[in-house]
């Protein structure tokens, strides 16, 4: 998989780099602006993002990202220091952004995160159209 990780904390990138398959490619964007530019130049299968970003917020990024028809179906996992209330995660607005999983970093084990990432892998015979 080609993954876009939007997070300015280097440990997260190292964590994923050490745990994912050798065939997975992880591009790291430390902020939302760079993430948009990178998404325009690459075909990503998955976005993993921190909500507390420098510059534009994670929420602003989400709304912009999902406004582009080409990217509307790219799954997004939120892995964030921001603790979101259940009512936000269950809200219609959040569901409309098609975020497949939300993980609060302090309470999430690596295994849980990897499991969610693996759930996004296309089946062997399936090709992902962007």
């Amino acid at each position: 998989m080609h993954i876009l990780l939007i997070d300015h904390h280097k440990t997260t990138a190292r964590l994923l780099g050490s745990k994912l398959d050798n065939s997975d490619i992880i591009d790291v964007a430390p902020n939302a602006d760079l993430a948009i530019n990178m998404a325009a130049e690459n075909n990503y299968d998955l976005v993993i993002m921190e909500m507390s970003l420098e510059g534009h917020s994670g929420l602003e990024f989400l709304y912009e990202f999902k406004s582009y028809q080409d990217w509307i179906d790219i799954p997004i996992i939120v892995y964030s220091m921001l603790k979101l209330e259940l009512e936000v995660v269950n809200s219609r607005a959040w569901q409309d952004l098609k975020i497949i999983s939300y993980f609060y970093k302090p309470e999430t084990s690596v295994d849980n995160l990897l499991s969610a990432i693996n759930d996004c892998r296309p089946a062997r015979n399936e090709t992902v159209q962007h």
């Binding site: 997260t12 302090p106 084990s109 690596v110």
Partner: peptide, 30 residues
């Protein structure tokens, strides 16, 4: 919380005999 999350993540990367303790204590503190 930030350095504690990093400690937890590093512990979970390490997979040595101390890493489970580090991860558990970091989680407790968080």
């Amino acid at each position: 919380k930030r350095p504690l999350v990093s400690i937890r993540q590093l512990a979970e990367m390490s997979e040595n005999e101390l890493s489970e303790q580090m991860s558990a204590h970091a989680k407790h503190a968080l």
